[in-house]
Nucleic acid binder design. Structure first.
Lengths: 228, 228
DNA sequence: ACCTGAACACCGTTCAAGT
DNA sequence: ACCTGAACACCGTTCAAGT
């Protein structure tokens, strides 16, 4: 926040305050949020932080480490509010929806966790799911498989959202025209060979991601209740 | 298959038969299968096909196009056998398991479809799911959401398998020690703060991916049957 | 039409050298 | 300890030139 004016000076302005891992991660998050995954390059990061490569590699192992830590940071704040003193069904919907919304707001986080689902940052999520399944009466032996299935579903949706966001960023479409394009392609499918796909094209163009996500969670919950 | 012997000759042996898109895709698939996603570089491809960059770009738009076509090719063969004249529940398990197994054998395909779930190659899969849901008595309006949820689940598992395979390829672990490492980390979670995760560590180390996948499908099917 | 391969514009990462 | 930035070893892609 200090040497803003020094822009075309001798060489690089050289920051007065010292760098920290937190500062680096924060800058990375902002770059990822505003420009997507491809916007985070080491070069761009050195420019933004007016520093050199070595400074960054001193605080962070490599780019993968940086991405993972950035994703952890984003998700860390989300998993706090959800507690289990309401109806477990409602709490489970809220918990999964919280993760959905966080990833919807930061699509690159979805891609990252889909790559590394065992990250410590997801521990709180697994724990929350597991406890609520317990509260729902799912027997201990089935709880692990059920939790895994639910997490996989959430991350599957997350990965898809991330990829949609990336495709949209590539062209300059907004969400609506993007979906309409996909729907048009589905509608072109041969009605004799692909009756379902052809018929579903309309719904594809109109559907709401968030609502459809919740329908999936509800199907899961309904199925899980048969495990009791 | 002709000029094998000419290895250290004048410059490059220059192929006698002409290149084709099919040949390129086939070579890409073999490289991806044996060396993972990072093994497919344009350079390596020119060497393997003893040709130049331009030849490849003449048959294929760019690397993304090549990857997508390779994934399509792998999946094309899989979706054939599954028909619906048995019990729809059994057929749905077989259909999803077919995709699971194909992706398990070619993890990079999972990563690719998780990125591009609207690829035409998945049309047959959507169609099969949609029809079987119809046979199960799921009403038309709910069928689209249910199919989407199921596909998301399958692709979520697929993406995770792909990432596990990549992590394992990085180090030299086999599946078993890889899972045991993850299980050890889960076991180290604070039992007071993370009782579920701590208790689930044992199952994480012992579980079978394929079986757990099917449990998830069954939960889905059970949940879906409540939509009737 | 089909192919060659040098050249270009990028990457992430390293490391001797500075403070 | 913390940082600099030139250099290195790669990428994917282009394009004038060849057949």
């Amino acid at each position: 926040m200090v040497n803003r004016t020094a822009k075309g000076s001798a060489r690089s302005p050289r920051r007065t305050d010292s760098l920290s891992r937190e500062l680096i991660i924060q800058a990375a998050i902002e770059m990822l949020d505003s420009g997507g995954e491809k916007a985070l390059t080491l070069r761009a990061l050195t420019v933004r932080l007016s520093t050199g490569y070595g400074a960054i590699y001193h605080h962070v192992k490599d780019k993968g480490d940086l991405l993972a830590r950035a994703a952890d940071e984003v998700i860390a704040g989300v998993m706090s509010g959800a507690v289990a003193d309401t109806d477990p069904r409602t709490a489970l919907r809220a918990l999964t929806l919280g993760l959905f919304d966080a990833i919807d707001a930061h699509p690159w986080v979805g891609a990252e966790f889909s790559r590394q689902p065992w990250r410590p940052a997801l521990l709180d999520f697994y724990e929350g799911v597991g406890r609520l399944l317990d509260a729902l009466g799912v027997p201990e032996k089935a709880r692990f498989d059920a939790a895994g299935a639910l997490v996989n579903y959430v991350l599957g949706v997350a990965a898809q959202n991330a990829s949609n966001a990336r495709l949209r960023a590539g062209s300059d479409m907004d969400r609506k025209t993007f979906l309409e394009n996909a729907a048009t392609r589905w509608a072109q499918a041969d009605p004799d060979r692909y009756p379902f796909v052809h018929a579903a094209a309309t719904q594809l163009g109109e559907h709401d991601d968030r609502e459809q996500f919740l329908v999936g969670v509800d199907i899961f919950l309904a199925g899980i209740s048969t495990l009791g």
